[in-house]
Nucleic acid binder design. Structure first.
Length: 744
DNA sequence: CTGGGTGCAGTTTTT
DNA sequence: CTGCACCCAG
């Protein structure tokens, strides 16, 4: 197929032409391609079409093309679009159908591809390892890592140096700061270990360099080595090490065969690498991408440096901003050999909104520093269908949050009454936190509901308080710790309170469902008959599923949300059951034993660990409620975090807040702590304060650039005059005043 | 409109 | 403990 035929087909399907920049991306041949794409510029579409071009025009074997993006959801979406186009192409060119199968494309998150490729290529260093997800890594570190378990003062200098990893709110103990009189508690140490170890791997920390560092880095090495040893011992691998192993795999003979191919269709080699959302890439991922394309230089990255949101995951915008330099350094080519294409045409927002957020991001001195944004980035050019002379950027205010929320609800009500919008789902309220507390989404959700406008707020963190989750946990605990004697020994009141709540919830259910209470009582009785110090034949999962098989859990299967939550909970139990038992190879936490001294009970140690490790985690994690409907119900107004809104667009976008202080969070401080020990020193350097500020600016940029018809700030009066963003208040229109002026 | 004092609640996101 | 909202004085 000819490239123009392909573009013609696309035009027929879409009804419009690609713009010249988009076309350049699709048509680009060999060599590094750096696509700097603004919001609403059609970047994912372009990536899809470029993939089609490689397959249908260049006739590359799909399995020689790697396409990655940031989340599973985005990856699925990307593949679906490719598949759609492919099917339409097959309608016009039926003879291709037998020759081309796009299912061969290596498309997914980088993590999933690393996993699949190493398994397919039988990489010995990865085969037979269990990949740990977030929860599994937590439980593994909680039980196995020296840093989390050492009871002496061995690690004190490390605790001091990385103090920020141990401070902040700890919901398990309800404390705000590590009490330095004592060692940090185990949850804090576990969380700190996770952050520390993951970041060391993601930022490609050179252990050799670290060896020469002054203390307490010796303790960091010691803790890290211990963790890696334990992982190997138990044949586990976390997400960060998955990437590290993949990088190492690429240097092995099997890896080189994968990379360069051997002339067979099974091993065609890696011919092209395409990366979406490149601004959220971290150093180890950058290294992987560069290595994958070292032989071909065919690396295409797409992203928007202004929309980087994932520093907490090790993502650094630097990779996006310095892509050209990285290619020059790694491939040994000239800067001009890297093709730069700016997709700066915006098809999403009203021109005034586009100018507004473009001005916004450029107005901060910290964003104008060298290396903060991609060089020579042109201004956004609005060419969307939306136009009209109305105030498209404005604010709604009030004396207090509640009053602001009230005015907001009145405004939304008016939008509906006056038929400016058909349904509430054409709006979105974007907030930093969607929790329905007085400082967050609470007043807004309430004001809307008071006016009969339903709210769609799926992530409100009360997973453990529903009757089904509380009920099954209560039933389970009633079996394994019937007199709650182990619970009594658990310190933190949060855990105790939560468990008591579950027990009560279970008792209420049990009153109505005698079969269930019979099962629970019988189980307690049969455990009581097992002699001291003996294995119990049932695994915790057996107990869990037996409870599930009883009413009312059984009939709750008809309820989508309840089923989802119970499914999540059973996954959590499965995870816990798979945690290796320290010191007993081959056994795991799912297996139960009776106590050594106390007759007829589950071992006290097991019960205690269950409360501390698993329940403590659940209580502190505040698990999310399910997001079952991906699409907002039309008669609901979605309340979401800015992260959730990424990649989406809404006719009316409301954003709360113009008064927020940039925060030096631990991701930023950790970057600095390891700055001098990177295998590759970073190409840009900002102070932690500068990075914190830039992150905050980008965060709101993402929010503002979601708006199609109107962007409306929700700001209590004080936000307009003071605070970090206060100046914005002077640039936008007060909706109420404008309405008065127009006599509306 | 600003600044200081008081009181209160306690992100977010992903593999 | 910190950051934010809110109130009040100037």
């Amino acid at each position: 197929m000819d490239i123009n035929e392909l573009i013609g087909i696309v035009k027929n399907i879409q009804g419009y032409d690609l713009d010249s920049q988009q076309e350049k991306v699709v048509k680009h041949g060999k060599g590094p391609l750096w696509v700097v794409a603004g919001p609403g510029s059609g970047k994912t579409e372009v990536l899809v079409l470029r993939t089609l071009k490689l397959v249908f025009v260049d006739n590359l074997l799909p399995s020689s093309i790697i396409i990655t993006t940031f989340t599973e959801k985005a990856a699925n979406n990307l593949f679906e679009r490719i598949l759609n186009y492919t099917n339409l192409i097959f309608k016009e060119y039926p003879e291709l159908e037998s020759k081309i199968d796009v299912h061969g494309l290596k498309i997914g998150t980088l993590h999933s591809l690393c996993n699949d490729i190493m398994l397919e290529n039988k990489n010995q260093a990865y085969e037979n390892y269990k990949l740990l997800d977030e929860l599994e890594q937590y439980l593994f570190i909680f039980e196995h890592s020296d840093l989390a378990n050492e009871r002496s003062s061995k690690y004190c200098p490390l605790f001091e140096k990385f103090e920020y990893l141990f401070s902040g709110f700890d919901p398990v103990t309800n404390t705000f700061r590590w009490n330095k009189e004592r060692l940090p508690n185990k949850w804090r140490r576990t969380n700190a270990s996770i952050k520390l170890f993951n970041r060391m791997v993601e930022n490609l920390i050179d252990l050799e360099k670290l060896k020469d560092a002054e203390e307490p880095y010796d303790l960091v090495i010691c803790a890290y080595n211990d963790y890696v040893t334990k992982l190997e011992e138990h044949r586990r691998c976390d997400f960060a090490h998955l990437q590290k192993k993949f990088l190492e795999f690429l240097d092995t003979p099997l890896g080189l065969r994968f990379l360069n191919g051997d002339g067979t269709e099974t091993h065609p080699g890696v011919k092209y690498v395409l990366v979406d959302e490149y601004q959220d890439t971290n150093p180890i991922q950058e290294e992987i991408y560069l290595k994958l394309s070292k032989g071909t230089h065919n690396l295409c990255v797409v992203g928007d440096d202004d929309q980087a949101l994932y520093r907490f995951r090790g993502g650094t915008v630097d990779c996006m901003v310095t892509f050209k330099q990285a290619c020059v350094n790694t491939f040994g080519i000239k800067p001009d050999d890297v093709t730069v294409i700016f997709l700066n045409t915006n098809y999403r927002s009203h021109p005034d909104i586009v100018y507004y957020y473009d001005d916004y991001i450029k107005s901060f001195p910290s964003m104008r520093l060298e290396g903060a944004r991609v060089e020579y980035k042109p201004p956004l050019d609005p060419k969307g269908k939306i136009s009209g002379d109305y105030p498209s950027v404005a604010y709604i205010t009030g004396k207090t949050i509640n009053e602001t929320a009230e005015n907001f609800a009145i405004f939304v009500e008016d939008l509906i009454k006056n038929e400016i919008i058909e349904k509430p789902s054409q709006c979105a309220l974007l907030m930093r936190s969607v929790r329905e507390s007085a400082r967050n989404a609470g007043p807004f959700a309430e004001a809307l509901r008071n006016r009969g406008i339903s709210v769609y707020n799926p992530r409100s963190k009360n997973f453990l308080e529903h009757e089904e989750t509380a009920g099954i946990l209560g039933a389970f605990i009633s079996i394994i710790d019937p007199d709650l004697s182990a619970l009594e020994s658990v310190g933190p009141p949060n855990i105790k309170n939560m468990v008591h709540f579950w027990i009560n919830e279970y008792k209420e259910i049990a009153d109505k469902y005698p079969d269930l209470s019979n099962y629970v009582n019988k189980s307690v009785e049969s455990i009581s008959k097992i002699p001291l110090d003996n294995w119990i034949k049932v695994n915790i999962l057996d107990i869990f599923y037996h409870i599930l098989a009883h009413e009312p859990f059984n009939e709750w299967r008809d309820d989508v949300e309840k089923t989802y939550r119970l499914g999540q909970l059973s996954k959590i139990f499965e995870t816990y059951a798979s945690v290796p038992y320290p010191g007993f190879p081959g056994s795991d936490r799912g297996e139960l034993r009776t106590g050594k001294t106390e007759d007829g009970t589950i071992s006290f140690g097991w019960r205690k660990t269950f409360y501390y490790a698993l329940i403590g985690l659940l209580v502190s994690a505040g698990l999310d409620d399910p997001e079952i409907e991906i699409l907002t119900p039309p008669d609901h107004l979605p309340i979401m975090t800015v992260h959730q809104s990424k990649g989406l667009e809404f006719p009316f976008v409301f954003v709360y807040g113009l008064k927020q202080k940039p925060r030096l969070d631990d991701s930023i401080l950790l970057e600095d702590a390891f700055l001098n020990f990177r295998k590759k020193p970073p190409l840009v350097n900002f102070t932690p304060e500068e990075r914190a500020e830039q992150d905050l600016i980008r965060f709101y940029y993402v929010a503002y650039s979601r708006a199609q018809y109107a962007l409306i700030h929700l700001v209590p009066k004080v936000h307009l005059s003071s605070g970090f963003f206060g100046f914005i208040g002077k640039k936008i229109i007060d909706f109420k005043e404008k309405a008065k002026e127009l006599g509306a």
